[in-house]
Amino acid sequence: MGALMEFAIILGVTLAAELLHALLPLPVPASIYGMILMLTLLATGAVKLEKVKRAGGYLLEIMPVMFIPAAVGLLEIITDMKGALLPIAGVIVLTTIIVMAATGRTAQWIMDREAAKKR
């Protein structure tokens, strides 16, 4: 019963998030509303961590598998994009590296400065 109850809570929050997505006129997907809602419920103590921890941990563990169908769908558009494939791939590879470096370096720089001030 425990595991089923945990899934029920998670799906309940997901459903509430879908309703929010349908009702509010913002370009925010249901999954983000759900994440914020779940965080609020946990932080206020309305849902105890133990009530979602096992089922949630399981879903997160198998999450990579959930990306396989969409990624295999790339097969479909590769042929449509033939001529532009190389430059588009170039933009994707370079920006991925640039965004990682910019985010990580900036965050680390701010934390290092804060740490230095305290000393």
Partner: peptide
Amino acid sequence: SYLLTPATVCLAIPLY
């Protein structure tokens, strides 16, 4: 893919 939305909701757990 159907499981992706509830899984994304669960990302709130490590965040919490």
